[in-house]
Simulated scan of single mutants.
Amino acid sequence: MASQNPGDGGDEQSPPPAPPFPARPTYLSFSHDASCLIAADEASVQWRCCETFKLRGLYEESGATAAAGDMRDRNQSTCAVVRRAGAGFEVRRFRPGSLNYSSRYDSVRIGGGDDDDDVRSVHVHGDRTVVVHAGRVDVFGLDDGRRKAAVLQRRVETGDNRAGACAVSRGPPGSPFAFACPGVNDGNLRVERWVGGFTPLVIGAHRWRVASVAMSWGAKLVATASVKGTIVRVFRVADGELLQEMKRGFDRADIYSIVFSPDSEWLAVSSDKGTVHVFHINVCSPSSSKTGCQDTTQSYESYGAKAMKKYVSSIKDLLTLGYFDPERSVAQFHLCDNVKYLVAFGTRPNKNIVLIIGMDGSFYRCQFDPVNGGEMKQLEYTNFLNM
Rank of each mutant, 00 (worst) to 15 (best):
V210Q: 04
V339F: 04
N372H: 10
G88N: 04
S31R: 05
V132T: 14
E51Q: 13
V139A: 11
G373L: 06
G187T: 08
C336H: 02
T291G: 07
S314A: 15
S212G: 06
I110G: 05
Y300S: 12
P25G: 14
S31M: 01
R92Q: 08
T78A: 13
S62V: 13
S287W: 06
T382A: 12
V119T: 09
G274T: 09
D143I: 08
A167S: 07
R147Y: 00
K247S: 14
T26R: 08
P370W: 00
M376I: 12
F21P: 10
G218V: 05
V237F: 10
P6I: 14
C181K: 07
D317A: 12
V259A: 08
R252C: 08
E301W: 06
D239I: 14
R162F: 01
N383Y: 02
G145I: 07
G174Q: 05
R93L: 10
S98V: 15
V278G: 14
S271G: 13
G57K: 05
A219V: 15
N5I: 15
P96R: 10
E157T: 15
G171M: 00
S299N: 10
A87T: 13
R147G: 12
V122W: 03
E60C: 12
G141T: 11
L28K: 03
V130N: 04
G10I: 09
G9N: 10
R84T: 15
V202W: 01
P20T: 14
H123I: 06
S261Q: 07
A68F: 02
V232H: 03
E375V: 15
L355M: 09
E12R: 15
E241K: 12
S14E: 00
V234P: 06
D337K: 12
A64V: 15
E380H: 11
S35Y: 10
M1Q: 07
E51D: 13
G126T: 09
G218Q: 05
W266R: 11
P6Y: 04
L221H: 09
G249R: 15
A43F: 00
W266G: 14
R84N: 07
S264N: 01
H32P: 04
G69A: 07
V312G: 10
A253S: 11
F368G: 13
V202L: 05
K54P: 01
T199Q: 10
A268W: 00
V312W: 10
H123D: 02
G69M: 05
A307S: 12
S329L: 01
K228P: 01
V132Q: 04
F333A: 13
L242Q: 02
G197A: 14
S29W: 00
R120Y: 02
S264I: 04
I356D: 02
M215I: 12
L242N: 02
T65C: 11
V82L: 07
R84L: 07
